[in-house]
Amino acid sequence: MVFEYANRLVNEGCEVYILFLNNEAFQRFHLPLFMKRILCNIFTRIEPNWFNLDRRVQKISNLDYGYKSKLGPLNALFATSAEKTVDEVFYNLQAEKKYYFIQDYENWHVSKEFVDKTYRLGLNNIVISKWLKKKIDKISGKPSILIPNAIDTDIYKKNRIMINRQPHTIALLYHQEKHKGLANAFEVLKKVKMKFPDLEVKMFGQFPRPNVPKWIKYYKNATQAETVSIYNSCQVFLCSTIEEGFGLTGFEAMSCGACLVSTNYKGVREYAVDNYNALLSPVGDIQAQVDNVIRIFEDPSLRDKISHNGEKSSKDYSWSEAMKKFNKMLGVQ
């Protein structure tokens, strides 16, 4: 989402910088600082290799000499994570306005007290979902700005109708964080595979291939075009998340016509309605997810209804609407 906003802002004529905090890069190699600085500058220039970031977006490493002066005077500055960027934005950099782009309640590696403190620093908090707004507003004591995640339906669109997809196909996102629920997702896949031996599974992510059965195809660092192709090749997108701010990949899959079979975590409720545009089940209930996958595979009318309504729902979250809210927040409209 940060890269998407960067692209759209430069298209509107803004000068945009992304600062990469590289202090922890290459730690396991115990490199001298000058070598680490050289490598980080190189990788900052070439990354991200999985996203088509506009060349006009300027990328800077914080290990680069004089990185603050290269940023120059800033009108707006955004922190994007509790652990990594809030301190840099709040204490070390200067700007007319400072914002905090909050996409989840990020207490995965730090304490609740640490995270809550970041929300109370006085930055202009931006949230992507209604449940986050309620939570963050209560913690911070002031209203946050709600800008729901958007979908580019010119990219994330259905280009293969359901009857032209293999009958027993599932896609999912792989992530190493426990709150993403992959341990449960793998149990779901094993049970579904027992009932449907011809099951095909396509999984993508930014991490090395996990220790999973060979019948699960894995796409490391899949590009945007590759993920769209994956979404369009499958009947079901499986999400076993325990907790998440929004759940963007599930929404992207819906926009491409895949049937979302998800746990009923808070974030997914922003766009998914059980038995209308998705099949939802209690968080952690593996058998309930298995049953919902089977329902999609065995009931073509239900499958087509969920697929159609999911695709239709994605059109309610346009980038034009998101940018209107974003620009209003910045005071440029």
Rank of each mutant, 00 (worst) to 15 (best):
P73K: 14
L260K: 05
Q287I: 09
I294M: 07
L189D: 04
T153L: 08
Y156Q: 03
D152P: 02
I230Y: 01
F196L: 05
H168D: 05
F251R: 02
V188M: 04
S307G: 10
E24F: 11
K190V: 06
G122Q: 09
F207D: 13
P148L: 13
K84T: 11
K134F: 09
R165E: 07
D299N: 13
F78D: 01
D304Y: 05
P48V: 12
F3P: 01
Q235G: 11
F34I: 07
D285K: 14
F51T: 03
K190N: 13
Y65M: 06
T85W: 00
K157I: 04
L63V: 03
T263V: 12
D316Q: 12
V212I: 15
A222Y: 01
K190S: 10
P208M: 02
I296T: 02
F29E: 11
Y99M: 10
I18N: 03
A6P: 01
L123T: 07
S69T: 15
G122T: 06
I136K: 03
E187P: 04
K180E: 10
V86Y: 00
I242N: 06
N62M: 05
K312G: 08
T227H: 03
L172H: 09
L280C: 07
R8H: 05
Q103I: 01
T80D: 08
K190M: 09
N309P: 02
R269Q: 14
P32R: 12
Y99Q: 14
N124K: 13
Y156K: 11
K157Q: 09
N277M: 09
L132C: 05
Y91R: 15
H168K: 14
K217A: 11
D304G: 07
P208E: 10
G247L: 04
I46N: 03
P48A: 15
E83D: 15
W131R: 05
S314G: 12
A322Y: 00
I161P: 10
S262M: 04
E243C: 06
E252T: 06
N149D: 13
D64P: 00
L19F: 04
I296N: 00
T263E: 07
Q287P: 02
N292G: 11
K325S: 15
G284H: 08
N23I: 01
N277G: 11
L63A: 02
Y17C: 15
I136D: 00
K202M: 10
P210K: 07
Q289L: 15
L146H: 14
N52K: 14
A272C: 08
D316Y: 07
V283S: 13
F326T: 04
N49M: 05
N107E: 11
M323F: 06
L302D: 06
V212G: 12
K130S: 12
Q206W: 04
P197W: 14
L182K: 14
Y17W: 13
F251L: 09
G72L: 12
K195W: 02
K328M: 09
D154M: 10
M194I: 11
V2Q: 09
S229V: 01
R269D: 11
Q94N: 08
Y231C: 10
V293T: 05
F204K: 02
A171P: 00
V86F: 00
D64F: 00
M329G: 08
R269M: 14
N211E: 13
